[in-house]
Simulated scan of single mutants.
Amino acid sequence: MSEMSATISIPLVSVAFPVFNEAENLEMLHAEVTRALETTGLAFELIFVDNGSTDASLSIIKRLSETDPRVEFVSLSRNFGHQGALLAGISHAQGEAVITMDADLQHPSALLPEMVRLWQEGFEVVFTRKRRYPVHGMRLRQVKLFYWLMSKWSGLHLSFGQSDFRLLDRKVFEVFLRMPEARKFLRGLVEWVGFRQTGLEYDPLPRHAGESKFPFRALVSFAVDGIISFSLLPLRWSLGLGFIVASMSFVYGIAMVVMGLLNYAGMSVPLPPGWATLVVSILFLSGIQLIAIGMLGEYVGRIFEQTKGRPEFIVRAASVSEREPR
Protein backbone atom coordinates (compact mmCIF):
# COMPACT_ATOMS: atom_id res chain seq x y z
CA MET A 1 0.00 0.00 0.00
CA SER A 2 2.79 2.43 0.89
CA GLU A 3 4.59 1.73 -2.38
CA MET A 4 1.39 2.38 -4.33
CA SER A 5 0.81 5.66 -2.49
CA ALA A 6 4.36 6.76 -3.24
CA THR A 7 3.89 5.95 -6.90
CA ILE A 8 0.64 7.86 -7.14
CA SER A 9 2.13 10.91 -5.43
CA ILE A 10 4.87 11.31 -8.04
CA PRO A 11 4.02 14.41 -10.11
CA LEU A 12 3.21 13.85 -13.76
CA VAL A 13 4.81 16.14 -16.34
CA SER A 14 3.29 16.39 -19.81
CA VAL A 15 5.26 17.33 -22.92
CA ALA A 16 3.26 18.49 -25.96
CA PHE A 17 4.69 18.57 -29.49
CA PRO A 18 2.91 20.18 -32.46
CA VAL A 19 3.79 18.00 -35.45
CA PHE A 20 3.45 18.87 -39.13
CA ASN A 21 5.32 16.66 -41.59
CA GLU A 22 8.12 15.76 -39.18
CA ALA A 23 8.28 12.01 -39.90
CA GLU A 24 12.08 11.99 -40.13
CA ASN A 25 12.49 13.61 -36.71
CA LEU A 26 9.98 11.81 -34.51
CA GLU A 27 11.87 8.70 -33.47
CA MET A 28 15.00 10.64 -32.53
CA LEU A 29 12.86 13.26 -30.76
CA HIS A 30 11.15 10.53 -28.71
CA ALA A 31 14.48 8.97 -27.76
CA GLU A 32 16.13 12.24 -26.72
CA VAL A 33 13.18 13.61 -24.74
CA THR A 34 12.62 10.29 -22.98
CA ARG A 35 16.29 10.06 -22.05
CA ALA A 36 16.27 13.62 -20.64
CA LEU A 37 13.06 13.25 -18.62
CA GLU A 38 14.04 9.91 -17.11
CA THR A 39 16.83 11.72 -15.25
CA THR A 40 14.23 13.79 -13.34
CA GLY A 41 12.73 10.81 -11.55
CA LEU A 42 9.22 12.07 -12.37
CA ALA A 43 6.45 10.39 -14.28
CA PHE A 44 5.85 11.91 -17.69
CA GLU A 45 3.74 11.62 -20.81
CA LEU A 46 4.54 12.69 -24.36
CA ILE A 47 1.64 14.12 -26.38
CA PHE A 48 2.24 14.33 -30.12
CA VAL A 49 -0.31 16.54 -31.90
CA ASP A 50 -0.50 15.69 -35.58
CA ASN A 51 -1.48 18.98 -37.23
CA GLY A 52 -2.80 17.69 -40.53
CA SER A 53 0.45 16.08 -41.69
CA THR A 54 0.56 14.67 -45.20
CA ASP A 55 3.56 12.39 -44.60
CA ALA A 56 3.92 9.35 -42.32
CA SER A 57 4.06 11.40 -39.09
CA LEU A 58 0.81 10.05 -37.64
CA SER A 59 1.71 6.42 -38.42
CA ILE A 60 5.06 6.82 -36.67
CA ILE A 61 3.41 8.45 -33.65
CA LYS A 62 0.91 5.60 -33.37
CA ARG A 63 3.74 3.08 -33.59
CA LEU A 64 5.59 4.89 -30.80
CA SER A 65 2.45 4.85 -28.65
CA GLU A 66 2.16 1.08 -29.12
CA THR A 67 5.73 0.46 -27.94
CA ASP A 68 5.82 3.15 -25.23
CA PRO A 69 2.74 3.57 -22.98
CA ARG A 70 3.90 7.07 -22.07
CA VAL A 71 3.28 8.27 -25.64
CA GLU A 72 -0.15 9.68 -26.54
CA PHE A 73 -1.35 11.12 -29.81
CA VAL A 74 -3.90 13.72 -30.89
CA SER A 75 -4.78 13.88 -34.57
CA LEU A 76 -6.41 17.10 -35.76
CA SER A 77 -8.90 17.17 -38.63
CA ARG A 78 -6.69 19.61 -40.57
CA ASN A 79 -3.86 22.05 -40.02
CA PHE A 80 -4.97 24.57 -37.39
CA GLY A 81 -1.68 26.46 -37.25
CA HIS A 82 1.11 26.23 -34.74
CA GLN A 83 -0.84 27.94 -31.95
CA GLY A 84 -3.89 25.74 -32.50
CA ALA A 85 -1.77 22.60 -32.25
CA LEU A 86 -0.13 23.88 -29.06
CA LEU A 87 -3.54 24.50 -27.50
CA ALA A 88 -4.66 21.02 -28.52
CA GLY A 89 -1.65 19.50 -26.78
CA ILE A 90 -2.12 21.62 -23.66
CA SER A 91 -5.84 20.81 -23.43
CA HIS A 92 -5.10 17.06 -23.51
CA ALA A 93 -2.29 17.23 -20.95
CA GLN A 94 -2.93 15.18 -17.82
CA GLY A 95 0.12 16.39 -15.90
CA GLU A 96 0.62 18.95 -13.16
CA ALA A 97 2.86 20.84 -15.58
CA VAL A 98 3.10 20.89 -19.36
CA ILE A 99 6.15 21.59 -21.49
CA THR A 100 5.61 22.70 -25.08
CA MET A 101 8.38 22.22 -27.62
CA ASP A 102 8.72 21.86 -31.38
CA ALA A 103 9.23 18.53 -33.10
CA ASP A 104 12.13 19.64 -35.31
CA LEU A 105 14.78 18.89 -32.64
CA GLN A 106 15.91 22.54 -32.50
CA HIS A 107 14.70 22.86 -28.91
CA PRO A 108 17.37 21.09 -26.81
CA SER A 109 16.03 18.19 -24.77
CA ALA A 110 18.97 18.62 -22.40
CA LEU A 111 17.26 21.71 -21.00
CA LEU A 112 14.20 19.77 -19.81
CA PRO A 113 15.62 18.63 -16.44
CA GLU A 114 16.55 22.22 -15.56
CA MET A 115 13.07 23.44 -16.48
CA VAL A 116 11.54 20.75 -14.28
CA ARG A 117 13.90 21.63 -11.42
CA LEU A 118 12.89 25.30 -11.54
CA TRP A 119 9.23 24.26 -11.54
CA GLN A 120 9.83 22.11 -8.46
CA GLU A 121 11.42 25.15 -6.79
CA GLY A 122 8.13 27.02 -7.15
CA PHE A 123 8.26 28.79 -10.52
CA GLU A 124 4.96 28.50 -12.36
CA VAL A 125 6.26 29.59 -15.77
CA VAL A 126 9.69 28.70 -17.15
CA PHE A 127 10.15 30.38 -20.53
CA THR A 128 13.16 30.25 -22.81
CA ARG A 129 15.15 32.68 -24.96
CA LYS A 130 17.52 31.93 -27.80
CA ARG A 131 21.07 33.19 -27.29
CA ARG A 132 21.39 33.40 -31.05
CA TYR A 133 18.85 33.07 -33.81
CA PRO A 134 19.45 30.29 -36.39
CA VAL A 135 18.80 32.61 -39.35
CA HIS A 136 20.80 35.36 -41.00
CA GLY A 137 20.48 38.34 -43.30
CA MET A 138 17.04 39.60 -44.20
CA ARG A 139 15.22 36.89 -42.24
CA LEU A 140 17.06 37.87 -39.04
CA ARG A 141 16.11 41.52 -39.55
CA GLN A 142 12.49 40.49 -40.06
CA VAL A 143 12.46 38.55 -36.79
CA LYS A 144 14.06 41.44 -34.90
CA LEU A 145 11.47 43.82 -36.38
CA PHE A 146 8.72 41.47 -35.20
CA TYR A 147 9.93 41.51 -31.58
CA TRP A 148 10.52 45.28 -31.67
CA LEU A 149 7.01 45.96 -32.95
CA MET A 150 5.49 43.58 -30.42
CA SER A 151 7.30 45.24 -27.52
CA LYS A 152 6.59 48.82 -28.65
CA TRP A 153 3.01 48.42 -29.82
CA SER A 154 1.56 45.81 -27.50
CA GLY A 155 2.82 47.04 -24.12
CA LEU A 156 4.34 43.62 -23.47
CA HIS A 157 8.02 43.06 -22.78
CA LEU A 158 8.85 40.28 -25.20
CA SER A 159 12.60 39.98 -25.40
CA PHE A 160 14.27 38.99 -28.65
CA GLY A 161 14.46 35.23 -29.11
CA GLN A 162 11.52 34.10 -27.00
CA SER A 163 9.87 30.96 -28.30
CA ASP A 164 7.07 28.52 -27.53
CA PHE A 165 9.54 26.25 -25.73
CA ARG A 166 8.32 26.68 -22.15
CA LEU A 167 6.99 24.98 -19.04
CA LEU A 168 3.60 25.96 -17.60
CA ASP A 169 2.19 24.91 -14.27
CA ARG A 170 -1.33 23.50 -14.38
CA LYS A 171 -2.84 26.57 -12.69
CA VAL A 172 -1.35 28.69 -15.50
CA PHE A 173 -2.44 26.71 -18.54
CA GLU A 174 -5.90 26.16 -17.07
CA VAL A 175 -6.26 29.95 -17.16
CA PHE A 176 -5.51 29.77 -20.91
CA LEU A 177 -8.05 27.02 -21.43
CA ARG A 178 -10.78 29.01 -19.68
CA MET A 179 -10.21 32.09 -21.83
CA PRO A 180 -12.91 32.44 -24.51
CA GLU A 181 -10.58 34.53 -26.67
CA ALA A 182 -10.22 33.39 -30.29
CA ARG A 183 -6.80 33.15 -31.98
CA LYS A 184 -4.85 33.15 -28.74
CA PHE A 185 -1.36 34.62 -28.97
CA LEU A 186 0.38 32.41 -26.41
CA ARG A 187 3.69 34.30 -26.19
CA GLY A 188 1.84 37.43 -25.18
CA LEU A 189 -0.62 35.65 -22.89
CA VAL A 190 2.19 33.95 -20.98
CA GLU A 191 3.51 37.35 -19.89
CA TRP A 192 0.06 38.88 -19.47
CA VAL A 193 -1.25 36.27 -17.00
CA GLY A 194 1.60 36.93 -14.59
CA PHE A 195 2.40 34.23 -12.00
CA ARG A 196 5.94 33.49 -10.84
CA GLN A 197 8.16 33.33 -13.91
CA THR A 198 11.79 32.75 -14.76
CA GLY A 199 13.71 32.31 -17.98
CA LEU A 200 16.46 30.15 -19.42
CA GLU A 201 18.71 30.80 -22.39
CA TYR A 202 19.69 28.19 -24.95
CA ASP A 203 21.39 27.78 -28.30
CA PRO A 204 18.98 26.35 -30.89
CA LEU A 205 20.21 23.16 -32.48
CA PRO A 206 20.37 22.62 -36.24
CA ARG A 207 17.24 21.11 -37.73
CA HIS A 208 17.76 17.34 -37.95
CA ALA A 209 15.67 16.85 -41.09
CA GLY A 210 13.04 18.57 -43.17
CA GLU A 211 12.55 22.28 -43.65
CA SER A 212 11.04 25.16 -41.71
CA LYS A 213 7.23 25.35 -41.72
CA PHE A 214 7.26 29.05 -40.76
CA PRO A 215 7.71 31.22 -43.89
CA PHE A 216 7.73 35.01 -43.97
CA ARG A 217 3.98 35.14 -44.66
CA ALA A 218 3.32 33.17 -41.46
CA LEU A 219 5.63 35.51 -39.51
CA VAL A 220 3.66 38.55 -40.71
CA SER A 221 0.35 36.92 -39.79
CA PHE A 222 1.78 35.95 -36.40
CA ALA A 223 2.92 39.54 -35.77
CA VAL A 224 -0.47 40.98 -36.76
CA ASP A 225 -2.25 38.55 -34.42
CA GLY A 226 0.02 39.53 -31.55
CA ILE A 227 -0.31 43.28 -32.06
CA ILE A 228 -4.08 43.25 -32.52
CA SER A 229 -4.56 40.90 -29.54
CA PHE A 230 -2.76 43.20 -27.14
CA SER A 231 -2.84 46.76 -28.48
CA LEU A 232 -5.16 49.52 -29.64
CA LEU A 233 -2.16 51.58 -30.73
CA PRO A 234 -2.71 51.12 -34.50
CA LEU A 235 -6.21 52.59 -34.14
CA ARG A 236 -4.89 55.47 -32.07
CA TRP A 237 -2.15 56.16 -34.59
CA SER A 238 -4.77 56.18 -37.32
CA LEU A 239 -6.80 58.69 -35.31
CA GLY A 240 -3.74 60.85 -34.70
CA LEU A 241 -2.75 60.74 -38.36
CA GLY A 242 -6.28 61.81 -39.27
CA PHE A 243 -6.00 64.85 -37.00
CA ILE A 244 -2.61 65.74 -38.51
CA VAL A 245 -3.89 65.50 -42.08
CA ALA A 246 -7.02 67.47 -41.20
CA SER A 247 -4.90 70.18 -39.55
CA MET A 248 -2.59 70.39 -42.56
CA SER A 249 -5.58 70.64 -44.88
CA PHE A 250 -7.09 73.39 -42.71
CA VAL A 251 -3.85 75.39 -42.71
CA TYR A 252 -3.45 74.89 -46.45
CA GLY A 253 -7.03 76.05 -47.06
CA ILE A 254 -6.51 79.22 -45.01
CA ALA A 255 -3.29 79.94 -46.91
CA MET A 256 -5.11 79.63 -50.23
CA VAL A 257 -7.87 82.00 -49.04
CA VAL A 258 -5.32 84.57 -47.86
CA MET A 259 -3.41 84.37 -51.14
CA GLY A 260 -6.64 84.78 -53.08
CA LEU A 261 -7.60 87.85 -51.05
CA LEU A 262 -4.17 89.36 -51.60
CA ASN A 263 -4.55 88.87 -55.34
CA TYR A 264 -8.03 90.40 -55.19
CA ALA A 265 -6.52 93.42 -53.39
CA GLY A 266 -4.15 93.99 -56.29
CA MET A 267 -1.04 92.24 -54.97
CA SER A 268 0.57 89.75 -57.32
CA VAL A 269 0.82 86.55 -55.32
CA PRO A 270 1.33 83.40 -57.43
CA LEU A 271 -1.17 80.67 -56.62
CA PRO A 272 -0.04 77.01 -56.87
CA PRO A 273 -1.32 75.11 -59.92
CA GLY A 274 -4.65 73.57 -59.06
CA TRP A 275 -4.53 70.27 -60.97
CA ALA A 276 -1.35 68.80 -59.45
CA THR A 277 -2.29 69.99 -55.97
CA LEU A 278 -5.74 68.45 -56.27
CA VAL A 279 -4.49 65.09 -57.52
CA VAL A 280 -1.80 64.78 -54.86
CA SER A 281 -4.22 65.75 -52.09
CA ILE A 282 -6.85 63.25 -53.24
CA LEU A 283 -4.36 60.39 -53.54
CA PHE A 284 -2.80 61.17 -50.16
CA LEU A 285 -6.13 61.38 -48.36
CA SER A 286 -7.39 58.25 -50.12
CA GLY A 287 -4.32 56.32 -49.02
CA ILE A 288 -4.76 57.45 -45.42
CA GLN A 289 -8.41 56.43 -45.48
CA LEU A 290 -7.66 52.99 -46.91
CA ILE A 291 -4.96 52.37 -44.30
CA ALA A 292 -7.32 53.41 -41.50
CA ILE A 293 -10.14 51.27 -42.88
CA GLY A 294 -7.75 48.32 -43.16
CA MET A 295 -6.64 48.69 -39.53
CA LEU A 296 -10.22 48.98 -38.37
CA GLY A 297 -11.13 45.96 -40.51
CA GLU A 298 -8.55 43.81 -38.76
CA TYR A 299 -10.12 44.56 -35.37
CA VAL A 300 -13.66 44.12 -36.68
CA GLY A 301 -12.60 40.84 -38.28
CA ARG A 302 -11.36 39.56 -34.93
CA ILE A 303 -14.70 40.50 -33.37
CA PHE A 304 -16.48 38.62 -36.15
CA GLU A 305 -14.34 35.53 -35.54
CA GLN A 306 -15.01 35.75 -31.81
CA THR A 307 -18.79 35.93 -32.27
CA LYS A 308 -18.80 32.78 -34.41
CA GLY A 309 -17.46 30.81 -31.47
CA ARG A 310 -15.58 28.28 -33.58
CA PRO A 311 -13.10 26.05 -31.71
CA GLU A 312 -9.36 26.61 -31.91
CA PHE A 313 -8.96 23.05 -33.18
CA ILE A 314 -10.99 19.95 -34.08
CA VAL A 315 -9.82 16.50 -32.99
CA ARG A 316 -10.23 13.68 -35.49
CA ALA A 317 -8.81 10.97 -33.25
CA ALA A 318 -6.90 10.80 -29.98
CA SER A 319 -5.51 8.24 -27.58
CA VAL A 320 -6.09 10.52 -24.59
CA SER A 321 -9.20 12.43 -23.54
CA GLU A 322 -9.34 16.19 -23.41
CA ARG A 323 -9.15 17.28 -19.79
CA GLU A 324 -11.66 19.78 -18.49
CA PRO A 325 -10.19 22.73 -16.52
CA ARG A 326 -10.64 22.44 -12.77
Rank of each mutant, 00 (worst) to 15 (best):
A317Q: 15
R129W: 09
R196G: 10
H30M: 05
R310Q: 13
R170I: 03
A246G: 07
A31G: 08
G210W: 02
W275K: 14
R326K: 12
I90C: 01
M101Q: 07
L200M: 06
V71H: 09
L205H: 10
P270K: 08
S154N: 00
L186R: 02
L296C: 09
V193C: 12
M28I: 13
A317F: 12
F284R: 12
M138C: 10
E174Y: 05
R63V: 05
A85E: 00
Q106P: 00
A218C: 08
G84Y: 04
E72F: 14
D169A: 15
Y147R: 02
E38S: 10
H30R: 07
V220M: 07
R70I: 05
L87H: 01
D68V: 09
A292I: 02
T34V: 07
F313G: 03
I47F: 10
F195E: 01
A292T: 01
R323A: 06
G253E: 12
H157L: 08
I61N: 12
E96R: 14
E96F: 09
L46T: 02
S247T: 15
G188F: 07
G81Q: 00
E201R: 10
Y264S: 09
G161C: 08
N25S: 06
G294R: 02
S321E: 13
E45R: 00
A182D: 14
G89H: 03
A6L: 12
E211R: 15
S75C: 15
V193L: 15
V15A: 11
I293H: 13
G41K: 04
L112Q: 01
P204L: 05
D203W: 03
E66K: 07
S59G: 15
M28W: 11
P234W: 05
R196N: 11
G137Q: 09
L262D: 12
A218L: 14
V190W: 11
M267S: 13
F146K: 10
P180N: 12
R326P: 05
A36S: 13
G260Y: 09
F127D: 06
S281G: 14
R166I: 03
V315M: 01
T100P: 06
E305A: 10
V33Q: 03
R139H: 07
R63N: 06
I8A: 15
L26D: 08
V193F: 12
L12N: 07
G294Y: 08
S5I: 10
F173Y: 15
F160T: 09
F146R: 12
V193M: 13
R166L: 12
R217H: 09
E121H: 05
G226Y: 01
Y147G: 02
P215Y: 09
R129H: 13
R302H: 08
T307E: 13
